[in-house]
Computed example of a mutant assay.
Amino acid sequence: MVEVERTVALHHPLPDVVAYLADFAHAQEWDPGTVSCRPARAGAPVAKGAEWDNVSRFRGRRTELRYRLVRLEDLRLTFVGRNRTVTSTDDLIFRAEKGATLLTYRARIEFRGMARLASPFLRGEFERLGDQVAQRMPEAVNSYFGSGGGPAD
């Protein structure tokens, strides 16, 4: 198992940031490994139990996971993605701070089967991905909300 944690300041109101990140389709904007992320059911509302089909690229290989929103709270979101070789958990914890939002992002990747043997060797690459998420997250949020505080036109 590999765990990565980063904390980033997002200069937008907490409820707006939570609503934006609750739609996991936006992972395409803030997660450097995500190639595409689409709702599993078109038109389904963002609610606990909602699912997304995620295509990621890691170490040159394409990986598909089905993510589910398992926790939807005012200050916390948890998504769990699975396929036959891995379970990936993205846990997002929010705190309001001086009109901005402090986000603690935790990713836990659990490999199954023979893939488990590789996890100690992949830690460095996941740490680099964590650094990239911490860099891209504020950029994605700022791009989405623009300078007006609401979704950019």
Rank of each mutant, 00 (worst) to 15 (best):
residue 61 R to Y: 00
residue 89 T to N: 03
residue 56 S to R: 08
residue 82 R to Q: 12
residue 39 P to C: 05
residue 100 A to T: 14
residue 59 R to L: 13
residue 38 R to W: 05
residue 85 T to R: 11
residue 96 A to N: 10
residue 36 S to Q: 15
residue 95 R to E: 15
residue 66 R to C: 05
residue 67 Y to E: 04
residue 37 C to P: 04
residue 44 A to K: 01
residue 72 L to A: 09
residue 42 A to G: 04
residue 105 Y to Q: 02
residue 106 R to N: 02
residue 96 A to D: 15
residue 58 F to Q: 00
residue 87 T to G: 01
residue 76 R to Q: 15
residue 81 G to Q: 09
residue 42 A to R: 13
residue 85 T to G: 08
residue 53 D to C: 02
residue 81 G to K: 09
residue 71 R to N: 07
residue 56 S to P: 04
residue 81 G to C: 05
residue 54 N to F: 01
residue 97 E to N: 09
residue 54 N to I: 11
residue 102 L to N: 09
residue 50 A to N: 07
residue 79 F to E: 00
residue 61 R to H: 07
residue 56 S to L: 14
residue 70 V to D: 06
residue 95 R to C: 11
residue 88 S to K: 04
residue 106 R to F: 07
residue 37 C to K: 05
residue 55 V to A: 08
residue 80 V to R: 10
residue 58 F to K: 03
residue 53 D to L: 10
residue 106 R to G: 06
residue 62 R to A: 01
residue 95 R to S: 14
residue 51 E to V: 03
residue 84 R to K: 12
residue 56 S to I: 13
residue 103 L to K: 02
residue 105 Y to E: 01
residue 61 R to K: 12
residue 51 E to W: 01
residue 83 N to K: 04
residue 92 L to S: 00
residue 68 R to T: 15
residue 37 C to Y: 10
residue 86 V to N: 08
residue 38 R to G: 05
residue 75 L to H: 14
residue 64 E to F: 11
residue 105 Y to S: 05
residue 36 S to E: 13
residue 94 F to T: 08
residue 97 E to P: 05
residue 67 Y to M: 10
